[in-house]
Design a binder for these strands. Sequence first.
DNA 1: CCCTGATTCGC
DNA 2: GCGAATCAGG
Length: 232
Amino acid sequence: MSWTDERIATLKKLWEGGSTASQIAEELGGVSRNAVIGKAHRLGLKSRPSPVKAKDKKKAAPAKKKVAPAKPAIRKPKAIMTPKTAANSPPRPPSNAVEQAARAAGANIPSQPIPNKSTELPKIVSVGPGGFLRQGPGDQQPPIPPAPPRRLVPAKPSPEIADKTSLLDLSDKVCRWPMGHPGEPDFHFCGAEVNPGFPYCVEHCGRAFQAQLPRGARRPPPPLPFGGPRVR
DNA sequence: CCCTGATTCGC
DNA sequence: GCGAATCAGG
């Protein structure tokens, strides 16, 4: 995966928007958290509230010692998404989903309140739909946010799953073959009538259960479930 | 343990 | 330039 202008732009936006490197990596896809951080630093944008950075009293002599890794060959593939894990743990729990959405919409929300000498200025109480900022009842005077250009495109909860088979629609009678990528708005299941005795319909049974052919007589492997590796 | 970002350094 | 390995704090 290479760093196209688009991906770099996304990286910048999310990084400056306060998303964590992990979230950015997940959003971009095909890159690791380390890759995101490395790229961010190379781009010059760095320094965000870091756990390991808050040591600054006078001096710090971080004697870095690095020995050549004798065996750089071992690279852990890192866990891949299975239907089960995907279904049970959505990529991004909605702990601060609203704020996330607001950031995605281009709202400028400082990660930390800007220190103010005298009394507090408008306190942001919450983030409304579209990314506008709600304020307290007493201090909604200055129209702080100058209405940033926004487009709520990726609004995750989409009305996409209208007549699609969702996780909750699964039963012993419908095909459980996953369609699309877990976690994405249009992710659903095949839903066709199952091949009796199997969890999939006839067509997907043909994909799931391949007869073992003699060596040399094998056909190229069929597309994987989930539409194959994620490409963005 | 998990998470985070920072840094190093082989490729 | 890239990113895995590693470090180090929360």
